[in-house]
Write a protein that binds this DNA or RNA. Structure first.
Length: 124
DNA sequence: ATGGTGACTCGCG
DNA sequence: GCGCGAGCCACCA
């Protein structure tokens, strides 16, 4: 588990219940503005966490991360996509047709780079 | 080192 | 709005 993954997970853990953000925004927050795909890769890795890793699909709210269009990015044929939509609905996020979310209402403000540094320092 | 694979984005047509 | 192509990044073989 490298530093990049750690940063992604810690920032995602800051997303409040009922809010969402995108892979690209997460990437910007940790100082890798063009690493959106890598962020998605990091979250997918939560499905098979290392035995002693504190970061798992149970401790990191991966379901609060969607694509820049406010849509769930997982292949819709996979049950994971429906599970993500269900969890979000349960915590108050309105899901429209085609698993689309109203970002105007549910987009997380996010963190500034300085705040990210504080998070990484105190928790890591 | 090298090429292939994604839970990404942006710009075009 | 939708599909494509092209960058981009971390991983793995």
């Amino acid at each position: 588990m490298n530093n990049f993954y750690i940063k992604v997970y810690k920032v995602v853990q800051q997303i409040p219940k009922g809010k969402v953000t995108s892979y690209g925004r997460i990437a910007e927050m940790i100082g890798h503005p063009n690493a959106a795909r890598a962020v998605g890769y990091a979250l997918s890795a939560l499905r098979n966490p290392d035995s002693n890793s504190p970061y798992t699909s149970q401790t990191v709210p991966w379901f609060r991360v969607v694509n820049s269009q406010g849509r769930i990015s997982i292949n819709h044929r996979e049950t994971t996509a429906n599970r993500q939509a269900l969890i979000l609905q349960e915590e108050g996020v309105e899901i429209g047709p085609n698993l689309k979310i109203n970002l105007e209402k549910h987009l997380w403000q996010g963190l500034h780079i300085v705040e990210v540094d504080d998070i990484l320092k105190e928790l890591g």
